[in-house]
Amino acid sequence: MNMQSRTARLVFLALAIIGLISILGLAIWGTVRLATSLNNANPFSRLAVFIASVTLKKEIIRQDLVINASPSMVETGQEVALSWQSNINVGMLGAYVLTYPCNTGVTLKLPSNDTISCDAAFNLWSKTEITLIPTLTVENPVDLAITIAFVPQGATASTMNRTIAVTVTPLEKPATTDKPKTSATNPTTLTPGAETRSTYSINGNITPGTGAADLAISIVDTGIINDATNVFTHATSVASSNQRTGIIFDVINLGGVASQQWSFAASLPVAGGEFKSDIQDPIPASTKVRYTMGFRDLASQGANTIIIRLDPNNQISDKDRTNNIASTTIYRAY
């Protein structure tokens, strides 16, 4: 009886072990099948990996305006050349204006002898230089503050301005010296003639136009982003799969009012490369935002095309949709 009992126990134990092994094998097989099914049926798992490999940096480009005056000190009635430059996008519509205060003892004129009114915006259109003739109406030198401002089309106020001081001095009185009288005629001294310049008719105050929000995109550069320092270096090709490809692009509001919240989509030349941004903040009029996007593992040898679309689903009001798309190419050399 004892022998039969031991045999039964051994048989039962063997069957239990075989059953446990079968259950474990079935569980492992089911887990593998489930993981494979989820990977094939659910693109969000692959999308999560792809999005994690994309980096996006955003910078608001502050506009700036630099003015130069040559000379910065001038005698009354003499010419002073004013020039300025800015980082305004070349496609932005608007005009520069000049202003200077009244009650300073100085009046500004053009070489054509036309007077520029004080405390009023004088329209310079798209010019970046002008010749002025300051005239003193007082006896003492005056530091005249001259302001150049940019007013976008559709706006009623400037988006940026800078002021420069020009010192206007009285004419220097020639020193009187006693000369011996002589009957001989002194030779005539030659003096320079008046300088001849071509002038443009730019009289009148600015009349701002009207314009709806108009987002536009432009590709700035392609290159490689250093993983350790995040420094972008210009390049037209990528030499290794370990290098992070980079693209810089600008989005600017060419309109006269702020845009709505918006988004963009990027077709990147990588596996599963359809990227859609989060909702972006409204862009004020005449403001530019710069983006640097990084990604890895270019899909094809040779040329790889990158396409970026603003407001891909036409969800916002935008004046001109022809400037909402831009593309560029970068080469894979590995």
Rank of each mutant, 00 (worst) to 15 (best):
residue 8 A to C: 11
residue 16 A to S: 07
residue 17 I to G: 02
residue 18 I to E: 07
residue 19 G to K: 00
residue 21 I to T: 07
residue 21 I to C: 04
residue 22 S to E: 08
residue 25 G to L: 07
residue 26 L to Q: 11
residue 26 L to D: 10
residue 27 A to Q: 02
residue 32 V to C: 01
residue 33 R to Q: 14
residue 33 R to P: 05
residue 37 S to A: 15
residue 38 L to C: 02
residue 39 N to K: 13
residue 41 A to C: 09
residue 45 S to Q: 13
residue 46 R to L: 14
residue 48 A to L: 06
residue 52 A to K: 15
residue 55 T to K: 11
residue 61 I to A: 11
residue 64 D to C: 03
residue 67 I to M: 06
residue 71 P to N: 06
residue 74 V to T: 12
residue 76 T to D: 04
residue 79 E to K: 13
residue 80 V to T: 14
residue 86 S to F: 01
residue 87 N to M: 04
residue 88 I to D: 07
residue 88 I to P: 05
residue 99 T to A: 00
residue 99 T to P: 02
residue 100 Y to A: 07
residue 102 C to F: 04
residue 103 N to Y: 13
residue 104 T to N: 12
residue 105 G to N: 02
residue 106 V to E: 12
residue 107 T to V: 10
residue 109 K to V: 06
residue 122 F to H: 08
residue 125 W to D: 11
residue 127 K to N: 14
residue 129 E to M: 11
residue 130 I to S: 10
residue 131 T to V: 06
residue 131 T to N: 07
residue 132 L to A: 09
residue 133 I to F: 03
residue 133 I to T: 09
residue 134 P to I: 00
residue 136 L to W: 09
residue 143 D to P: 00
residue 144 L to D: 08
residue 145 A to D: 14
residue 145 A to L: 06
residue 148 I to Q: 06
residue 153 Q to A: 05
residue 155 A to M: 12
residue 156 T to R: 01
residue 158 S to L: 02
residue 159 T to I: 04
residue 161 N to S: 15
residue 163 T to D: 00
residue 164 I to Q: 01
residue 166 V to Q: 09
residue 166 V to W: 02
residue 174 P to S: 10
residue 175 A to I: 14
residue 175 A to C: 06
residue 177 T to Y: 01
residue 177 T to G: 00
residue 181 K to C: 05
residue 186 N to M: 08
residue 189 T to Y: 09
residue 189 T to N: 15
residue 193 G to K: 15
residue 195 E to D: 13
residue 199 T to G: 01
residue 204 G to V: 13
residue 205 N to W: 09
residue 206 I to P: 00
residue 209 G to Q: 00
residue 209 G to P: 00
residue 217 I to G: 03
residue 220 V to H: 11
residue 221 D to C: 00
residue 221 D to N: 13
residue 221 D to S: 15
residue 222 T to R: 12
residue 224 I to G: 01
residue 226 N to F: 09
residue 227 D to I: 14
residue 227 D to T: 15
residue 228 A to L: 11
residue 231 V to C: 06
residue 232 F to P: 13
residue 234 H to M: 00
residue 238 V to T: 08
residue 238 V to N: 01
residue 239 A to V: 03
residue 246 G to S: 08
residue 246 G to C: 08
residue 247 I to V: 15
residue 250 D to V: 08
residue 255 G to V: 01
residue 266 A to M: 10
residue 271 A to H: 05
residue 273 G to T: 04
residue 279 I to F: 10
residue 281 D to A: 04
residue 281 D to K: 07
residue 281 D to Q: 09
residue 283 I to M: 01
residue 283 I to V: 07
residue 284 P to E: 00
residue 285 A to M: 08
residue 287 T to F: 03
residue 288 K to S: 04
residue 291 Y to Q: 12
residue 293 M to I: 11
residue 295 F to D: 08
residue 297 D to F: 12
residue 301 Q to I: 12
residue 301 Q to S: 15
residue 303 A to L: 08
residue 309 R to V: 13
residue 313 N to S: 10
residue 316 I to A: 03
residue 318 D to R: 03
residue 319 K to V: 07
residue 320 D to A: 06
residue 321 R to A: 05
residue 322 T to C: 08
residue 322 T to H: 00
residue 322 T to Y: 03
residue 324 N to Y: 06
residue 324 N to H: 09
residue 330 I to E: 02
residue 332 R to H: 05
residue 333 A to P: 07
residue 333 A to E: 13
